[in-house]
Measured scan of single mutants.
Amino acid sequence: TDVTFHVNGRNLHLKGADEELLRRIEELIRRGADIEELEKAVKEWEK
């Protein structure tokens, strides 16, 4: 799945995201995470 999140005026584009990653990103956004936290979560998922 390709999806782009718009967070605090910045874009986080995910290519090939699975349901697990999407749920994790949505949860972080609900908690008020900043873009750096979201990018870190994506990097951890990519490993």
Rank of each mutant, 00 (worst) to 15 (best):
H13E: 06
G9L: 02
I25M: 07
N8S: 05
L28Y: 09
H6L: 13
H13W: 04
G32M: 04
G16K: 08
R31C: 09
V7K: 02
L22N: 01
L28D: 02
K43I: 11
R23M: 08
I35G: 01
G9M: 02
A17W: 05
E36H: 08
H13L: 09
L12H: 00
R30I: 09
E44S: 11
K47L: 14
T4S: 09
A17Y: 06
T4D: 14
T1M: 13
L38N: 00
V3R: 10
E20V: 13
I35E: 01
H13R: 09
L21M: 07
R31I: 07
H13Q: 06
I25Y: 00
F5Q: 04
E20P: 11
H13K: 08
E19W: 14
L14A: 01
R24P: 00
N8L: 04
K47G: 12
E19A: 15
D34W: 06
R10I: 12
E19R: 14
K43Y: 14
I29L: 07
G9P: 00
E39Q: 08
R24T: 10
L22K: 05
W45N: 05
F5S: 04
V7A: 02
E20D: 11
L21W: 03
E26L: 15
A17C: 13
I25L: 10
A17Q: 02
T1S: 10
H6Q: 09
K43M: 11
E19L: 11
L14M: 04
A33H: 09
G32Y: 03
E20M: 14
L12R: 00
L21T: 08
L21F: 07
V42M: 05
L22H: 03
E44W: 11
R23D: 05
K43A: 13
G32L: 04
I29Q: 01
L22S: 02
I35S: 01
E39V: 12
D2W: 12
R31G: 10
V42A: 06
E26R: 15
D18K: 06
A41S: 07
L22Q: 03
A17P: 09
L14Q: 00
K47W: 12
E20G: 14
R10S: 12
R24F: 10
H13G: 01
L38I: 06
D34G: 09
K47Y: 12
R31N: 09
L21H: 01
A17N: 03
L38W: 01
L14C: 01
R31P: 00
N11R: 10
L14D: 00
V7E: 03
